[in-house]
């Protein structure tokens, strides 16, 4: 059993990543001079990482302004999406786990799951319609006379955040639901009986108990939104780039796999590091996530 798991992890995760890692330390000989591939000049180099940090040699700026700022904006936006999802999903998960009963709870779960039968692309385009200039929301707001001019939700990235946030709500709800469901109702009642307000009950009893679920939900949502591609492509404003889009350009239009790999690895390592630091701050052990 353990052997099978190890084999699975090696084939599916470790090996491909090692290839990527190897790529990221090479020149893009494919384009420069394919004949030199594997030759004496094909040595490991930091050129791709250097490019991400400082840009091309004739870049007048002290660092690669475009890529680096997109990188940090992406991380920041992913954090924002994660927090937004947490704020949205914690009450839903709590309600499902502790308050809702029987048919009502099942109905709510269906309402949460069924929209995800629609595939990601379709959903993203649907959000474009929802948030577009002539979209449902603008039409409603104008119909109510709240605004004169349609709001450009796409340019303001509202559509992107909403789309990303919505795309991962289940990944936030279910881990939290799982944990909160196992919380003894009497604990909540005991806290209430001792005079605690609702806020206090959540802060001292429910949230500490739900921490492993909250952590795994946040980790997944953060990683996936930082690494999302479709939603930023479709819903992102014209002026905003997601870091994954830059990576995609290197792999695809740029035909520069080594540079794409380097960018992707930096993104991945930063995300992992970030998650570990946050977990350290909130005193969550990695083992707790698996519970």
């Amino acid at each position: 059993m353990l052997g099978a798991v190890a084999l699975w992890i090696i084939i599916m995760i470790v090996l491909p990543q090692l290839f990527m890692l190897d790529f990221s330390f090479r020149n893009n000989w494919q384009q420069i001079d394919p004949s030199k591939m594997g030759g004496p000049e094909d040595v490991y180099t930091l050129v791709n990482y250097h490019f991400l940090a400082f840009g091309s040699p004739n870049n007048p700026d002290p660092f690669n302004v475009v890529d680096v700022s997109v990188f940090f904006r992406t991380i920041l936006a992913a954090v924002f999406v994660t927090l937004f999802d947490l704020a949205l999903c914690y009450p839903i998960a709590y309600y499902l786990a502790q308050a809702a009963k029987g048919a009502k709870a099942r109905l709510l779960v269906l309402a949460l799951i069924i929209p995800f039968w629609v595939n990601e692309l379709l959903r993203a385009f649907a959000f474009r319609i929802l948030f577009g200039d002539e979209g449902t929301i603008n039409a409603a707001l104008m119909g109510l006379g709240l605004i004169e001019q349609p709001i450009d939700f796409v340019r303001e990235n509202v559509a992107l955040y909403a789309g990303l946030g919505y795309a991962y709500i289940l990944l936030m709800i279910f881990p939290i639901y799982n944990v909160v469901e196992s919380l003894d109702k009497n604990q909540i009642e005991a806290a209430r009986d001792l005079g605690a307000s609702w806020w206090k009950i959540h802060r001292r009893v429910v949230i500490p108990f739900a921490k492993p679920g909250i952590t795994s939900g946040c980790t997944m949502v953060f990683m996936l939104s930082a690494g999302a591609l479709a939603a930023p492509q479709i819903l992102g404003g014209p002026s905003s780039l997601w870091f994954t889009q830059i990576i995609y350009q290197w792999f695809n239009t740029g035909s520069n796999w080594p540079r794409g790999s380097a960018y992707a690895i930096v993104l991945m390592l930063t995300c992992v590091l970030f998650v570990l630091i946050v977990m350290k701050i909130f005193k969550v052990k990695i083992g707790e996530i698996g519970r």
Partner: peptide
């Protein structure tokens, strides 16, 4: 509500808070 009555209930399963120390449990009120 229960939080405003001059009563305190000891539950059938006690319902102590497992993530708090003994003294934190006791002084929760």
């Amino acid at each position: 509500g229960p939080n405003h009555r001059p009563t305190a209930l000891i539950f059938q399963n006690l319902a102590l808070f497992p993530l708090m120390s003994v003294w934190e449990n006791i002084s929760f009120a």
